[in-house]
Structure formats: structure tokens, C-alpha cells
Amino acid sequence: MNSKKTINTQGCNRLLSLLALLALVPFQLSAESARLPAGPSGQALAFTCAGCHGTDGSSVGPSMPAIAGMDPEVFVDAMKAYRQDERNPSIMNRIAKAYTDEQFEAMGWFFASQRLRLFPQPYDPRLAEQGARLHDDYCEKCHENGGRPGDAGTLAGQWMPYLHFTMEDFISGKRKWPRKMQRKVDAAIEEAGGDAIPALVNYYGSQQ
């Protein structure tokens, strides 16, 4: 609106020249802009998350998960689950109800394309070592590469307090287990008892 007010002859020339040059721009660019849906962009939507999840999704707060570099499908599934009150309701369920599926996808793509920055956190090396073994035996099949970002979420380097919350929710039945996970966690607990979860969490936290 205001930019229109300031257009002068020079501005018009510039606009025409830009239009002329646009013809030279590889066509997928204009195709992309044609596909842009109305409403806020994925970037604009994702920027609003940073107050809690850190700039571009790299959280510096230990209770808030890093979401940078996250698989977009995992992101969308998580947001849908929150929207349907399927995860232990605290705050994300209230926020998720504001968005459409398309907006979740747009945000998901934004975060997927961000580099994950990890921050050192204190961990217990003994537990981490035990956790590494448990991970290999019970978790690595789905959480590949030690739990690096992939199609089963980000565990490696994830904030430990957040991981503890998540495991508490699974174990207390407040979050639905993904396929096979409950059996695997039960088996890990059978092997290592009360140390199993702290060991796994310390292992993920140790990957910095």
C-alpha cells in the first residue's frame, strides 16, 4: 500500500525493467510464487515459534525441544497429535488448534531446511555409556544413527529434560506409543531396571 504511494517515474521504469528481467528467471521460481497459497508464509508462521523453540528451531532452553532439521512428516504428525489433544496437554495443544494442515506442512518444511545447532548439556558419562548399549539393542532400528534427525524424530543432542518429559508421558500412558516402541522400552527396562530411561536420555544428551 505505502510502497505504491512512493512509486515515481523512476520506480515505474524499475518495475518494468524488473518485469523484463523476470522473463529470464528460471521458470520454477515463478511457478513457485504462483503456487503460494494466501495467508502467512511458512517462514512467517515458523518465526512465531522461536520465542519458545529458539531462532529457526534451535532451542537453547532445556525443556523445549529443538525442532530445527526435523523431518517434516514427523513435525506435521506431532502437530496434528497436539491439535487432537493426543499428547499430554500443556501448551502445544492450545497452540496447534490455530493451524491448518497446510500451515503445519509449510512450517514443517521451514524447520526441515534449518541447520540444527546443538548446545552442550551436562550428562553422566557412566549412564551415557550404558545408554549407548541399550540404544543399540532396542532403539537403533527405528532411531537410526544414534537418534540423529530422521523419520523418527530427533534424539541425538536433544535436550535431556525434554526427553525425560517425553518418556514420562509414554510410560504413564499420556502419549500414544508408536508401533513397537512400547515392547522395546519394556525390554530395555527389564534389562536395566530404573536406570534404563536415564541411561538412554543421558546417551542422547551426550551427543553434542
Binding site: 519458545c52 523453540h53 537453547v60 532452553g61 532445556p62 525443556s63 523445549m64 500443556s90 501448551i91 529434560p161
Partner: peptide, 11 residues
Amino acid sequence: EVSYAHSWFKN
């Protein structure tokens, strides 16, 4: 929510 508050502050 207390721990979220403190993490919110950091972020």
C-alpha cells in the same frame, strides 16, 4: 510449566 517458563526465558 515452571521449567517451560525458564526455558521460554532463555529462548
